[in-house]
Design a protein around this nucleic acid. Sequence first.
DNA 1: AAAGGCCTCAACCGCAAGGTA
DNA 2: TTACCTTGCGGTTGAGGCCTT
Length: 367
Amino acid sequence: MGHHSCCNQQKVKRGLWSPEEDEKLIRYITTHGYGCWSEVPEKAGLQRCGKSCRLRWINYLRPDIRRGRFTPEEEKLIISLHGVVGNRWAHIASHLPGRTDNEIKNYWNSWIKKKIRKPSSLSSAPPTNNASSLTNSVDHSSHHHFSYNYTNSNQLLDHHHHFGGNNNNNQDNLTPKQQPLHHHQESLFSSTYPLFMFDTSSLDATTTTCSTTTDNNTLRVDHIFQDANVGLSSETWNLTHHNHNQQVHHQPLARPSATAFTVAVGLDATNYLPPLIENVESMVPVEVQSCSMEDVGDAATLECLQLQRHQDHEQLNAWVESTNVHQQCPSFLFWDNVVDAQIGGGQEELAPNSSSNKANTLSPFPL
DNA sequence: AAAGGCCTCAACCGCAAGGTA
DNA sequence: TTACCTTGCGGTTGAGGCCTT
């Protein structure tokens, strides 16, 4: 088994840490800090690699670590966040003070297994998927594709929405086994729904819709946004961040073939979760760039988002009209209550490029 | 009581990104 | 520009404890 470059010394110890090692590491870190982890083992008198020391400290020894069972609140938050960011455990952990990504990851994996093995607690639909299909779904999300294979697990039925340029792939085509999905959605959504603005130009039937193309009866859906307890603080939304995020690495939010999902703005500022804002912010420049909305510009995008956040549909419609966003980017689509529409049936066609510009203006989905 | 399966979680591995010389 | 190093992240493994039969 290969070793890391930092761990290729013969004397490096592996495996569980002894109390003595812990004590050495704690003593060293508390007195010297950990400027360079690669130097820590030597200076602390440990026969470990720096990486191992770092992991031990971060996941176990640091003083602000919080151990013990997850509270229901934490659990809810994890579920919600996982639906938003997928397997980005570090990101999720940033919302849970004292919890580590490793802990959350372990918890999630255990939780998944537990739910899989308890089909009786799941939906009325008979189980049609096994653990492997679920594992696949997790793998998808780990690549930040937000492509979830929804099993019959009620717990795992993350809220999701489909984006249709083609209603042939909508719910009408679902088998009876798949249709109860909306029931789960309803139970999992709260009353406040996020609002979306995204580019539908690159969408196609195979990548954007609620389809039945995957293994067995699994429903594969591009997951955009699932939890309503996600808000955007206007204070945090500024062009500085925006510009910054244009330079940083963007995690793709859709499959590479469909750079569809751009802006998700929560409406409930009271449930503001700071790190998610970063996520939201990071989505915007991608679309701004891809849509060639130079004339609309960053400031206008900001304005748009803020209007969305305040649910000021009238002003937002005015904004849409004034900026000629439809002409410049006809594939942009705005809507709110997308979730509501999906829950409520959502069988209407989504027509981002319909003859009427109204179809692209801000109006409840479906249009 | 014993054995086997299951579950939890600490730790490791590989990879990618960022920094720097 | 490139190579190397460090750090951080997510996936995976495996030891040990717990549970079931």
